[in-house]
Design a protein around this nucleic acid. Structure first.
Lengths: 177, 177
DNA sequence: TCACATTAGTTAACAGATGTACTAGTTTCA
DNA sequence: TGAAACTAGTACATCTGTTAACTAATGTGA
């Protein structure tokens, strides 16, 4: 049975259809896992896209640019390596991004004193002013999103998401670099 | 107080540090929202990266390529527009991606009969064989990830993620195109 | 019915991320 | 101490995705 009647196929009716076909026609067994990961992926993309489009792009920042400035703001000065870990980017991405942020005058890059190979990232005064200002808008927007859930629900969600990714040493996970 | 002692700054100690500084030094109020969205973003990225790197790249598929083939497999034949909605990509991305998947022989593209502007996407036989094979591995991997949580926890997580993004008509969200 | 607005898809220019290969500084240990 | 192994960061080529502009088909309403 092919998917006729695409009349009103939204995300959830697609998930339902997919579950049914994967189980009945192909005998796959882990529908709940598929559903969970589809939902996770989708939620993250929707929220991220909205924050980027409504808060950051209009102010000339990319999502990654914001994330790098954010960790540098609060945890800096810090080595590029550490910034890559905290943001989840590759070291190459941090390097590329830092280059443009430095030329925008938001980020400052100086050789590490302790380790001659490393580079210490920190915000310039302008970068600092920008972050305080941008984060004000960002944080309000975050609260609009999160506000759909009660604080208890938010805490449970955080806990479950954390559990999902921290118990992953049980199997061999592919991480960046 | 700057972040001295970067000795062991992992994700969670960063979140803790960020919360503290955002509240005490800058007076921002929505720490729980920030924590939720950071965690959501991170979880999605970690899982997605692992699936892409361990399952799809080795078989010559990008993550987006897999997603497009996946919805086409289970809901196809379907219009490019609908595929964009279901995968969360832009229409331009679907168009570009379809071009390469067609030339790889996995996807077939024919003019829609009902609407002369539209294009119907469906899998070729080869594409279908590939998907059944790839999804076998993908689904096992998904189950390894999800298996960290109990079925109840998985259901709660799905419910909360869904609630997070479906009640969003309460405010004005920026979506793709 | 015919002009106007809308919509589907494609294209082009561009921004950003990836992996690989490279340079240079640091650690290790024989 | 000195050679080999390792690590931090960068450069480069490539690939993907984004927006904006465009073409072509469809809908709409005086």
């Amino acid at each position: 049975m092919a998917a006729s009647d695409p009349g009103e196929l939204d995300f959830w009716s697609f998930v339902e259809l997919a579950n049914r076909r994967l189980a009945r026609e192909y005998g796959f067994r882990h529908q709940l896992a598929t559903e969970l990961l589809l939902t996770l992926n989708r939620a993250s993309n929707i929220v991220t896209y909205d924050l980027e489009a409504s808060v950051h792009r209009p102010r000339g920042l990319s999502w990654s640019g914001f994330r790098l400035l954010f960790v540098t703001w609060l945890a800096g000065p810090l080595e590029a390596k550490k910034a890559a870990e905290l943001t989840g980017m590759s070291r190459a991405a941090v390097s590329n991004l830092a280059k443009t942020l430095v030329s925008d005058g938001l980020l400052s890059r100086e050789p590490g004193s302790r380790d001659g190979r490393s580079v210490l990232l920190s915000l310039t005064d302008e970068g600092h002013r920008d972050m305080v200002e941008v984060f004000r808008v960002h944080n309000e927007r975050e609260d609009e999103w999160a506000g759909v859930l009660s604080p208890e629900e938010q805490r449970i969600l955080i806990m479950l998401l954390d559990k999902l990714v921290t118990n992953r040493d049980q199997f061999d996970v592919r991480g960046r670099n």
